[in-house]
Design a protein around this nucleic acid. Structure first.
Lengths: 204, 204
DNA sequence: TTTGCATTTAACCAATTGGTTAAACTATAT
DNA sequence: ATATAGTTTAACCAATTGGTTAAATGCAAA
């Protein structure tokens, strides 16, 4: 059926446009008219597909989040060495941010505006499996494999190094005078740069 | 003259309220009525003091920025060793974020929505003096004092490690199960943790 | 050919919101 | 006492915006 295909096309066009507009403007700044325009349709059809702005956003966001979390949980709970774990974590985290660059800033905003509600919606009951990594760090510190470090600080460092260049993309581009291509290359390079940066820091 | 004093009080009350509301809601989400309410005045008086939302925002933000930049420029252009520079940079950056925790997320949002306009307004013509640090890094790499590293990556790492824990404060608190006191202690500890983390990473 | 979904057009509504205005009141400086 | 600046009240305007509606069109499946 060609119709169904058309249907999917339009829906995907809308989601793509929504991603772009939400990225640029945030939830408050995003205009339904903008999204419709960018999707090449009109407002009526936009509301025909998604009842309202909130639903549209939820669809866009949960779609990305549902791809994100399972992979990170896998990496963190896998039976691998600490250095291997850090390397894989950084690579995958940066890759996923690069694929969904609109997410992190949005999350930070929503979580700022309504911490409880939002965190509940995203994580539900489950928390990120940080205990695994913490234990592993403590163990390797005790064994003298790595330098002493607070596992919590290490974890925040890892996430900071992965996420920040995305939420600060325009500033990074401006300060370092990068066009899109240079920025992409810079991010690509970070996948290994950040991993070695972290490992070099804690290795004895 | 008591009047002038009253005047200053009201103006400061408005700016304080504006800071709070802008922090919570961002530029788009912030409502003039909210600001007036929180300042304990009415909308008419708010507009009596600040012609419009944009002017108010500008005042609030530039006031904070004008305290921030000179200090960082000083540190970056000072005639000190690289490790000293990194240490001072991290300490001051984190201190200033702790004093103005509402700024970073706000900046990231505005710069996302209107990169040119906002960056021009904040930085004007001048850019952060990154060349100094870049040269210093290249020199010490060449001299074999530190490991080879792209100065740009290093600088982004420094800033990421300083800023991110603030923009992600609610998430950090939730994931690591911290109350306000624990979070403050965590941030305080970062002033030295982050500095040694970076230096340990690049030191040969 | 008829049925039904996708899509457009275009007008419209209700709520929000930034911003204005004018009149009145208060307290103080002169 | 009077002028002046700070402040309130309250109504109002214009623009934006999320969302709705109804009628018409195109088009593929049956």
């Amino acid at each position: 059926m060609v119709k169904v295909q058309q249907d999917d096309n339009t829906q995907e066009k809308i989601l793509e446009a929504a991603r772009a507009v939400f990225l640029e403007k945030g939830m408050d700044g995003a205009r339904m008219q903008d999204i419709a325009d960018r999707a090449g349709i009109n407002k009526a059809l936009l509301h025909y597909y998604f009842r309202n702005k909130e639903k549209l956003f939820e669809t866009v966001f949960l779609e990305a989040a549902s791809r994100f979390f399972p992979r990170m949980v896998n990496i963190l709970t896998a039976d691998t060495s600490l250095f291997e774990k850090i390397t894989r974590f950084v690579h995958h985290y940066i890759s996923m941010m690069a694929e969904n660059p609109y997410i992190p800033l949005f999350v930070l905003n929503e979580v700022q505006k309504q911490p409880k509600t939002f965190l509940a919606k995203v994580f539900g009951n489950r928390r990120p499996p940080i205990e695994e990594l913490a234990k592993q760090v403590k163990k390797e510190v005790a064994q003298g494999i790595i330098k002493p470090i607070d596992p919590r600080q290490l974890m925040i460092n890892m996430v900071s190094l992965c996420i920040f260049p995305f939420v600060a993309k325009p500033v990074v581009q401006w300060v370092l005078k990068m066009d899109e291509k240079a920025y992409s290359a810079f991010i690509e390079a970070r996948k290994t740069e950040v991993a070695t940066f972290i490992i070099d820091s804690i290795r004895k």
